[in-house]
């Protein structure tokens, strides 16, 4: 079992990296983008018996900083 954790910045939190990507896209002539937000994906290869609750605890304790970030967990077979 694998878990895929997607970490994104909360709404309203300034995202300099997303802004830089947006500018770069515009520089390449892609005008159809309103906004860019960058996040990260962490894939966990889970040991037997590890549950989604365990992954949730990992997110709260280390993987995400809930002051500025949201996370979503997807369990993948």
């Amino acid at each position: 079992m694998k878990a895929r954790v997607t970490i994104t910045l909360k709404n309203g939190v300034l995202d300099p990296q997303g802004k830089a990507i947006h500018h770069a896209l515009e520089g390449l002539g892609f005008s159809g983008v309103e906004d860019v937000r960058a996040g990260k994906v962490i894939e966990l290869d889970l040991a037997e018996g590890a549950s989604e609750d365990d992954v949730d605890a990992m997110c709260r304790k280390l993987l995400a900083n809930t002051v500025i970030e949201n996370y979503a967990i997807e369990m993948v077979d």
Partner: peptide, 17 residues
């Protein structure tokens, strides 16, 4: 110190990158 929660808030990438 912000990551431990001893101080509030977070330090993000500089606005200029």
């Amino acid at each position: 110190l912000t990551e431990t929660g001893l101080l509030p808030g977070a330090l993000m990438r500089n606005k200029s990158m």
